[in-house]
Design a protein around this nucleic acid. Structure first.
Length: 264
DNA sequence: GGGAGTGACTTGTTTACCTCA
DNA sequence: GCTGAGGTAAACAAGTCACTC
């Protein structure tokens, strides 16, 4: 973070007019700017903050802003040497360049947080609605499975009766073996990757629990799924928020793998 | 008149360097 | 000469003010 400290000390010890007026010195300073080459700000600060002159032409020119923006695009933190160079090129005080970069970083971070927040909200809503749709689809499939199961039992009973009437052989072992019990179905579903452990426990609710989940339970389940923290907890630490690249995370235009494709 | 944008400032923190016992 | 404590300077983030448009 402060890897350029050595340079800074060496450089600014010979340049008292630049960063020596840094606000961090906590001294009030008389600040005379060569800003915009056409006017001088002439801002004098006393022990308390004073209003600046109305004649103070404070806005940087379009050219200055353009240069600062392009430099910021390449690096959000300026090396002292580059700061001096840029300040000289633009006819600004190094301190003005430093403050511009500080403000830019702060306001860019704020906007980035807003963007990320809205993107996360939108994707949460998409995910939640998709979850609901999948849940309904799953309910339909479970019902279908139950019906097929019942049909299978029915048909096996019919064939067993035919055999029984002919041989008089005990049928219990045969019927038990042929009976497509739920556990065997579940096993086959698991082999096919249709059901997970959680699915089976949910399915048990559907099949044996006497019906579907209560709305409150559904909501809880939904919230539990949605609130599950990321494995790397990259979004749990504010330190990492700034590094969240929403463009690459959520940009559908890239055509790359999307995290919610897991649901497909 | 009020809100958004922006340049500058204040305050507190972190880090590296220097001095001295 | 080495070491730890204290002082200092510089940079930064966060919050804010003052001003312009």
């Amino acid at each position: 973070m402060f890897e350029d400290q050595t340079i800074i000390h060496g450089e600014y010890s010979y340049c008292p007019t630049s960063e020596a007026f840094d606000s961090n010195s906590h001294h009030e300073a008389t600040f005379s700017s060569s800003n915009n080459s056409s006017s001088s700000s002439g801002v004098v600060l006393g022990t308390t903050r004073k209003k600046k002159s109305k004649n103070n032409k404070r806005r940087f020119s379009d050219g200055q802003i353009k240069s600062l923006e392009s430099m910021f695009a390449s690096e959000t933190r300026l090396e002292p040497r580059k700061k001096l160079q840029l300040a000289t090129e633009l006819g600004l005080q190094p301190r003005q360049v430093a403050i511009w970069f500080q403000n830019k970083r702060a306001r860019w971070k704020s906007k980035q947080l807003e963007r990320d927040c809205s993107i996360l909200l939108a994707n949460y809503n998409t995910l939640a609605s998709r979850f609901e749709a999948l849940k309904k689809e799953k309910q339909g499939l479970v019902l279908q499975l139950q019906k097929l199961n019942a049909d299978l039992v029915q048909s096996s009973k019919g064939t067993d009766n035919d055999k029984d009437s002919g041989s008089g052989k005990p049928t219990e072992s045969i019927s038990e073996a042929n009976k497509p019990s739920l556990s065997s179905l579940e096993k086959s579903e698991r082999v096919l990757g249709v059901l997970s452990d959680d699915d089976i426990s949910m399915k048990a609710e559907y099949d044996f629990g006497g019906g579907v989940l209560e709305p409150a339970e559904e909501a809880e389940l939904l919230s539990m799924n949605m609130a599950e923290p990321a494995a790397d907890s990259s979004l749990t630490s504010p330190e990492d928020w700034g590094s969240l690249n929403s463009e690459t995370l959520f940009d559908e235009s890239t055509g790359g793998y999307q995290w919610w494709d897991f649901w497909s």
